[in-house]
């Protein structure tokens, strides 16, 4: 930890799956537990850290989030909350999915929290058939099995097709 304070102005380079490079200040990168562990264990001797699972568009969003949260002092929770909701406001499902995957891979707890919550809020009132389509899940129930599961939980289906 001491080294991260001393080298506060150090920068590192992240490379997205589609080959774009991002120059990031170290204290911003430390929002990610994955990167923090890499830096702590000195794996970062390589100049460029490849992130093969994250495309440039998503990585730019992730780093925007990290920068805001790294720069804001902890006393400004209200400001961060409004940044978070603005950040996710008009994001489509595909972008949210990518964000959750990136946050999970890079271990950024706060980002995982808000992105997962946003997805949950979007799907909570949708019929399960639609949820299936959103997640591209194949329905492996037989009609009888599906009816039985539904009957068991009838109260939760009031008002749903």
């Amino acid at each position: 930890m001491a080294s991260s304070i001393e080298n506060n102005n150090e920068k590192l380079t992240l490379k997205s799956s589609d080959g774009e490079e991002f120059l990031v200040e170290k204290h911003v990168a430390l929002q990610s537990t994955l990167l923090q562990n890499m830096l702590d264990s000195d794996c970062s001797s390589a100049d460029v850290i490849p992130l093969p699972k994250i495309d440039a568009r998503t990585l730019a969003l992730v780093l925007g989030y990290c920068k805001k949260h790294a720069d804001a002092s902890s006393s400004k929770q209200g400001e961060l909350n409004s940044f978070d909701s603005e950040f996710l406001k008009d994001m489509d499902m595909g972008a949210l999915f990518n964000l959750v995957l990136a946050a999970n891979f890079m271990e950024i707890k706060g980002l995982l929290d808000i992105a997962a919550q946003k997805i949950a809020d979007t799907i909570k009132d949708k019929p399960h058939q639609e949820v299936r389509e959103i997640f591209h899940v194949e329905n492996d129930y037989t009609p009888e099995e599906e009816a039985a599961v539904r009957e068991e939980n009838r109260w939760a289906f009031e008002g749903f097709p």
């Binding site: 997962a116 809020d121 329905n139 129930y141 599906e146």
Partner: peptide, 22 residues
């Protein structure tokens, strides 16, 4: 990841989502 998403929906939705797939 899927758990992290579903758990943030209200209980009633969670119960309904049992019907998505096995």
């Amino acid at each position: 990841i899927l758990s992290e998403i579903i758990v943030r929906a209200p209980l009633k939705s969670q119960v309904r989502f049992k019907s998505v797939s096995k």
